[in-house]
Amino acid sequence: MTEVATLLGKQAVLDALPDHPAVKAILAWDAEALADAKLDRGELTLSVAPDRIREACMALRAAGYNFFDDVTAVDWHPSVPRFQLSYHLLSHGFKEYIRLRTLVDEADPSVPSITPIWPAANFYEREIFDLFGIRFEGHPDLRRIMMPEDWKGHPLRKDYPVEGYR
């Protein structure tokens, strides 16, 4: 595969891609809110604080990233902060994906829901709530989706046992 440039760190991305529509949109929205950025294997990742995620999504949607594709979590136990949320947004106009990333603390994990922006996120956020135990503020129907309603624990967390009796 051809060597694709790897840019690590906010400054490197800002220097190399000042005209990228997603970078421009985030800078125009709030330059301070961009916590980190990287370009790895041709994929652009922008990091923001968890409480700003909905505004960041609105800014990106206005800039042409019109399609919500996916959101999921990664448990980096025992690192602090523990959870990473990865939003994948697609632009039909630019023909490009972008990853929006935020890190959430283990104590009382919660972020603003983006279901009011894209109703498509409804099931995805319910799935993360069910399997990781991260709450989404402002979600219209935050219930378990995969596991039974009386289930204890969140199976996709790294400290959830994979064998033995519960």
């Binding site: 790895d40 294997r41 994929e43 990742t45 594709d69 996916d70 990664v74 990865s86 994948h88 697609l90 994906y97 990853r99």
Partner: peptide, 13 residues
């Protein structure tokens, strides 16, 4: 690292 790869399958993306 992390990657996201999307393809068009029979039902959609």
């Amino acid at each position: 690292g992390e990657v996201y790869q999307a393809i068009e399958c029979g039902h959609g993306q």
